[in-house]
């Protein structure tokens, strides 16, 4: 095989891995959209917030230390302890559950029955609120997240491919871990929604709100549940992205990329989110590789959106979305 082709293959593989991460964020969107019809713009900021919380707990930061210092003139930063990764992850997941409860209690409950677009805008407001809140709580400097995941070049793949093709593929260990974890997460979610009582209730709500209510399913509990799950998915996505590029504000911008992924896959389909993520990941890497140099590079900024836009013109509900039926 020629050098170019091998290189393109490597780019494709790396694109697939990036796509997995997009898919992880998109998964959170789909879960909430299916269960409550809310297009949750704040999902990306939730990932950022979850990662910030995780780092904060792990390193024993004092929450709101900047605020406390500014008001009382003290100078505190850290508790004298460090928390092991696994406990920190559990605590951060707990924080996300608490957050889900607060969102249901103080926002969603009051917005039942409003038009979808109002709910969408409310989640934009929520995203802004959380962005400021996260920064005030944990500080806005770039943090490194290390929960003990392997990272760096995968030696085995490098050697094996070198022996096969005479060209070593560069694939990050972290990406492989991310792919495995994403697969496990999807499998777990599928099992949960197919075989557990709450999972069945969740699917019932997704199918028809009022019918679910009439057989005695508590909508509010389901909403808290689904926002908690989305919070947990956000935490996983936050860990992956954070370990890759540090916990910082741009994390929430990466999450914007999940939007074209969703459009491509369809808002209501979990497989759609995964496949959409992979298509976007591979597509933007290949486009940058093949066409980027001709038109100035940095095409990743817009390629995903334009691809989704062009695609939607031909299939407005996305790849796997439910057919949009409008009644007058």
């Amino acid at each position: 095989m020629s050098e170019q082709l091998l290189f393109a293959a490597e780019v494709t593989l790396n694109g697939l891995m990036a796509g997995v991460l997009y898919a992880l964020v998109a998964l959170g969107f789909v879960l909430i959209f299916k269960a409550s019809g809310i297009f949750n713009y704040a999902q990306g900021v939730m990932a950022l917030f979850a990662a910030l919380t995780l780092v904060g707990i792990q390193q024993g930061q004092v929450p709101f230390s900047h605020l406390i210092n500014a008001i009382f003139g003290t100078n505190i930063h850290h508790f004298p302890w460090q928390v092991p990764s696994i406990i920190a992850i559990i605590l951060a997941a707990g924080v996300m559950v608490g957050f889900a409860w607060l969102v249901e209690r103080y926002i969603l409950k009051h917005l039942v029955g409003q038009p979808d677009i109002i709910l969408f805008m409310a989640t934009i407001g929520l995203a802004y609120f959380m962005e400021g809140f996260g920064d005030i709580m944990w500080g806005s400097e770039i943090k490194t997240l290390d929960v003990g995941l392997p990272s760096g070049l995968n030696e085995t793949i490098d050697t094996v491919t070198y022996n096969w093709f005479g060209y070593g593929f560069f694939i990050d260990n972290l990406d492989i871990v991310a792919a495995v974890i994403a697969a496990l997460l999807v499998a777990a979610l599928t099992i949960f929604s197919q075989y557990s009582k709450q999972g069945r209730a969740l699917r019932a709500v997704a199918d028809d709100h009022s019918a679910a209510l009439s057989v005695g399913i508590s909508l509010r509990f389901i909403w808290v549940l689904v926002w908690s799950i989305a919070g947990f998915v956000a935490l996983v996505a936050g860990i992956m992205w954070g370990a890759k590029s540090g916990v910082q504000f741009s994390l929430s911008l990466i999450a914007l990329k999940a939007l074209p992924v969703l459009m491509l896959g369809g808002f209501t389909s979990i497989p759609g989110a995964i496949i959409g993520g992979l298509i976007i990941g591979v597509g933007e890497q290949l486009f940058e590789f093949a066409i980027g140099p001709l038109i100035g590079g940095a095409t990743q900024n817009w390629f995903a959106y334009v691809l989704a836009l062009v695609f939607l013109i031909f299939r407005p509900q996305g790849l796997f979305g439910e057919k949009i039926i409008e009644r007058v």
């Binding site: 605020l67 409310a122 407001g125 609120f129 400021g132």
Partner: peptide, 20 residues
């Protein structure tokens, strides 16, 4: 910078408040 973050919170909170 703290004031700027606070502004984000207030803007976000106000939007949710107004929508409700």
């Amino acid at each position: 910078d703290l004031a700027a973050h606070f502004e984000f919170m207030i803007v976000g909170g106000l939007i949710v408040f107004f929508l409700i």
